[in-house]
């Protein structure tokens, strides 16, 4: 598959795209990774679900969504004609659930790829549990690979000792593309009340606070595997996006920044073009993994 430009929006930070139609033409985007879809309805975690932290935020939404049946029947018809690539983030508590959701999404003509979410830190079962052990990461990827016929992306968790090892395990399972990173497991405490700020005590850290970690992981994975990388983690502007591309990302996702500036993604597209012009670089492809290390 191809993207019209390398700027896409991250799952969980852009709804199903519909909410941003009030701000700009979604056709400007390279693609939209829509909110995670699970086998059945999930109410998600209790309020409060977020905490503001230095240069970032913690969230613990818990994959709130109405399930794959509702996605196919109600949401898909509304978004399938957006003039951009729509990729569905697929999540679950069991391998059977991932497989079931992937099979259903496979039937949707307008969806060229799925992003397997084996890295959500905010659910009791499944999610990140699949993404932190190489053997289970391979197993769930392979099970989905067997039923899913289009582009299979797998979103990795940064909460591991060796990101390269997990990346290789997922490639062994048959992934076509790797997305990294999901949120870092973190915690916020209110000293005055002596209580955790969010209901689940721990949550996923995102925003500029995690950018150096994400860049490092993209670079390590770029060197470790041969398949394309979708990079994300604290991208707030075009310069951040270019750094991720230099580290080895073919495509980048804008996540938390969408909460602060709803217009940020089109601004990043414009900023990348300005950068390419200024450096006399013909195409954004030319900077993928072009980091000069010697």
């Amino acid at each position: 598959m191809t993207f019209k430009n390398p700027v896409t929006t991250a799952s969980g930070c852009f709804g199903y795209g519909e909410e941003f139609k009030d701000f700009y033409d979604l056709g400007l985007l390279g693609g939209i990774f829509v909110k995670a879809v699970t086998g059945s309805n999930r109410e998600g975690n209790k309020y409060p679900r977020m905490a503001e932290t230095p240069s970032g935020m913690l969230n613990s939404v818990g994959l709130q969504n109405k399930g794959v049946d509702n996605f196919c029947k109600v949401i898909y018809p509304k978004i399938k004609n957006f003039n951009t690539e729509i990729i569905v983030n697929v999540s679950g508590s069991t391998i059977d659930e991932y497989v079931m959701v992937a099979e259903r999404i496979n039937e949707l003509e307008g969806i060229p790829a799925i992003e397997l979410n084996i890295s959500c830190p905010n659910v009791k079962e499944g999610g990140m549990a699949f993404g932190v052990v190489p053997s289970t990461a391979t197993k769930v990827t392979r099970a989905v690979r067997d039923v899913y016929k289009k582009v299979l992306m797998v979103k990795l968790s940064p909460n591991v000792t060796s990101i390269s090892e997990i990346a290789k395990a997922v490639v062994d399972g048959g992934a076509d593309v790797l997305t990294l990173i999901n949120t870092l497991l973190g915690m916020a405490i209110n000293a005055e009340t002596q209580r955790p700020v969010i209901s689940t005590i721990t949550g996923g850290l995102s925003g500029p606070a995690i950018k150096p970690v994400a860049l490092r992981m993209v670079w390590q994975v770029f060197k470790a595997v041969k398949i394309p990388i979708v990079g994300l983690g604290g991208i707030m502007n075009a310069t951040d996006a270019i750094e991720f591309m230099l580290a080895g990302s073919s495509v980048i996702q804008v996540g938390t920044a969408n909460f602060i500036d709803p217009m940020v993604a089109p601004k990043i597209i414009e900023g990348i073009n300005e950068y390419l012009d200024r450096h006399n670089i013909a195409s954004a492809r030319d900077i993928i993994g072009a980091l000069k290390v010697c």
Binding site: G12, C13, F14, G15, E19, F20, D22, F23, K35, E43, G44, Y47, P48, R49, M50, M57, N59, V61, Q64, T256, N258, F259, P262
Partner: peptide, 20 residues
């Protein structure tokens, strides 16, 4: 508490007779 204000972060949920 909310992060975005326009419906995508799902952090400001309130429990109603229709769920979250």
């Amino acid at each position: 508490f909310m992060a975005c204000g326009y419906g995508v972060c799902l952090c400001c949920i309130v429990q109603t007779d229709k769920g979250n």
